[in-house]
Write a protein that binds this DNA or RNA. Structure first.
Lengths: 153, 153
DNA sequence: CTATTGCTGAAATGATTATTTCATAACTCT
DNA sequence: AGAGTTATGAAATAATCATTTCAGCAATAG
């Protein structure tokens, strides 16, 4: 995918907020036709630009009302350590985002938990447990000020 | 919503990965019936437990291949400053997540941009520009190690 | 033990929708 | 300018699907 056309940008803006609308409604909102929207959407799906529809769960409503961010420093950054770390992250569903970052720390983790004991448990069993990890520092989230999955297009 | 039933948990686990399936397919995968799945889903939507279907865009495929996290310290934390800050965050679509956090900093921001000049521009015009902001420190994301919207249920 | 209430799922329904086809329009390249 | 290529949208089609109804079942309370 070289560059998004105006039509494609508009389609993505709409579908990132509501993917339940029909092709004809999407066509109406983009001044296009149902057939063209359908073809464009299929192309973007195949190119991996846009996902299949998903539903988003409100963590607070399902007993995951607490967020934390955890910064991690590694003992070593060789390939083995990195892949061991990655595997550990993939295994824990409460760790929803992991970024390798520049600066004083090696990784930044976003963790979604029920409460402090739950967090403590994940920190101990999933992070401090690892041989490759040297230190970790945790920030508690006091409030979700803004939270969106919409990427500007 | 008091507590999630087994059926509801299974439904959410599936719908967080793929919301394009039909009620009958959802029923099949949960050993339930189409009618019951339909009713449960409507209840969960009404209770705000689960969103309408949305599509997720791959930032790298639409020219937003760079992520940054920015920590912000405020001059003051009075109600006016907080609401001014919140308003500024809401206005900038490149800032996708904002958390009020414990510790040395007041806020943690997740920013999705095209490149460094783009990031610089947002930092200057949207953050340092604000009267309520004292200091900010930015971490560059080197790699997205893990990134999911699926909340464990 | 019985009455009541609420939940379940199979089947019916009725509408909506994705998807294809085809004639036309727009554009590209020589 | 004109031949060739590609994209467009209106209409047709063929399925699929959400939603309702209803009879039976389970659980609860009196």
């Amino acid at each position: 995918m070289t560059q998004l056309s105006i039509l494609e940008s508009r389609m993505l803006a709409i579908l990132q907020s509501d993917a339940s609308i029909s092709m004809s409604e999407l066509a109406r909102q983009t001044n296009s036709s149902s057939a063209t929207c359908w073809r464009r959407l299929r192309e973007m799906e195949e190119a991996g630009v846009v996902s299949a529809p998903v539903r988003l769960v409100d963590p607070a409503k399902v007993g995951r009302g607490m967020d934390a961010f955890c910064q991690v420093r590694m003992k070593a950054q060789d390939a083995d350590a990195r892949s061991a770390f990655q595997r550990a992250m993939d295994l824990e569903p409460a760790i929803v985002e992991v970024y390798s970052i520049s600066g004083d720390w090696d990784y930044l983790l976003h963790i979604v938990v029920k409460d402090i004991p739950d967090l403590e448990n994940i920190l101990m069993t999933r992070i401090h447990e690892l041989d490759c990890v040297a230190t970790a520092s945790t920030m508690f989230v006091l409030r979700r000020v803004k939270h969106t999955t919409r990427i500007p297009v």
